[in-house]
C-alpha cells in the first residue's frame, strides 16, 4: 500500500519537475509559498472543495493549480479511483516530497540569500 502511494507520488513529482516552473522560484521562502499555495489549491480542486481566489496572488496560484489538476486527472487515471481522504494523503505526500527536493534537500546555495 505504502509502495503504491510512493510510486504514485513519484509520478506526480516527475510531472511537476518536467513540465512546471513555479516550484523553482529563487529563494526558500518564495518556494515555500509557491509549493503551499499551488499544491493546496490543487488538492482542493481534486477534492471538489472551494478554492480561495480573492487576491491576485491567490488567483495566480489557482491558475497553476487548475492546469496541474487537469493534467493529473488526464494523465493518471488511478486518481479517479481514490476517495477524498486518499487524495488528501497523496497530495500531502506530494507536498512533502516537493518541499524536500526544492527546499530542505536542495543543493542550491542561493536559496537562503536574504535579498533577491
Amino acid at each position: 500500500m505504502e509502495d503504491m502511494m510512493n510510486d504514485r507520488i513519484g509520478q506526480l513529482v516527475d510531472y511537476i519537475m518536467k513540465k512546471c516552473l513555479w516550484q523553482f522560484h529563487s529563494r526558500s521562502w518564495d518556494r515555500e509559498k509557491q509549493n503551499e499555495g499551488i499544491l493546496t489549491k490543487t488538492m482542493q480542486l481534486l477534492c471538489g472543495e472551494p478554492v480561495e481566489t480573492g487576491t491576485p496572488t491567490d488567483k495566480c496560484y489557482w491558475v497553476d493549480a487548475v492546469c496541474l489538476a487537469d493534467a493529473f486527472k488526464t494523465r493518471y487515471l488511478w486518481l479517479a479511483t481514490m476517495d477524498k481522504a486518499e487524495i488528501k494523503l497523496l497530495m500531502q505526500g506530494l507536498k512533502d516530497r516537493m518541499d524536500y527536493l526544492t527546499i530542505t534537500g536542495s543543493l542550491n546555495e542561493e536559496l537562503n540569500d536574504p535579498h533577491y
Partner: peptide, 8 residues
C-alpha cells in the same frame, strides 16, 4: 546561469 537554472 545560477544553480536555479540548472535545477530546472
Amino acid at each position: 546561469g545560477h544553480q536555479g537554472d540548472m535545477e530546472k
